[in-house]
Amino acid sequence: MIKLTSIALLAGFLVGCAYTAQPMESSAHKTSQREMTKQIELAVEKNDYRLLALASRRLVFPGLEQEDTAKLKKMCGVRYVDKSPDIIKSIEEKQKRRDAYAFAKSFNQAMLKHCLNVASDSKHAVE
């Protein structure tokens, strides 16, 4: 009887811990999304349609790897993510790189739409 009660209590604690850990992740994700939206709004206000790139051996726009990099660079411009090292030496740096990549991916996918709109508008103005 005591053994069964102990197991039930332990299971309850484990389920409770798993349940409370999830809202923190979604809260961090929402904060990141708000920050990204804010960054895009500020850039658009300044007519700055540059895409984010990570320091790397070659130019990489996170989230737009399948696109023509040279064309995007010419059309939109490039802005490198601060503190995104090319060489990763620790688990903490690896996590920072992952976070920077995720932010840049979301940013680039949203900013590309603005860049393409401006590019198509200016193309029509020239014609």
Rank of each mutant, 00 (worst) to 15 (best):
S90V: 10
K89M: 13
R34I: 15
L59K: 06
E65R: 08
T37V: 03
K74M: 10
T69F: 00
A55I: 03
S122D: 11
S84H: 09
R98V: 08
K30V: 01
V81G: 14
A110W: 13
I91F: 14
S122A: 10
N47Y: 13
A70T: 14
F61D: 06
H114T: 01
I7C: 07
P85G: 07
Y49W: 10
S84I: 13
L72P: 01
D86F: 08
K94D: 05
C76V: 01
E65M: 07
L52T: 05
V126K: 12
K3N: 14
S27C: 14
I40Y: 09
E93H: 03
L10C: 09
M24V: 15
M111W: 02
I91Y: 15
E25C: 08
E35R: 05
S6V: 04
R50L: 07
S56D: 04
F13N: 11
A102E: 12
E67R: 01
S56I: 04
Q22T: 10
R34V: 13
I40W: 07
V78I: 04
S84Q: 10
T20L: 07
R50K: 02
K105Q: 09
A104E: 02
D48T: 11
N117C: 14
A28N: 10
F13H: 11
L51W: 02
S120G: 12
I7E: 10
L9H: 07
P23M: 11
R79G: 09
A70Y: 13
R34F: 15
L116G: 00
G63K: 02
A21P: 05
L9S: 09
T20V: 10
Y19F: 12
L14S: 12
G77C: 04
L14M: 10
S32K: 12
I87K: 12
Q109W: 06
T20G: 07
S122N: 13
Q109G: 05
Y49G: 08
Y49S: 07
L10V: 11
L116N: 01
Q22H: 12
Y80S: 06
R58N: 04
A8G: 04
A104P: 05
A21V: 04
T20C: 06
E93C: 00
T5G: 14
A110E: 09
G63M: 00
M111I: 00
V60N: 09
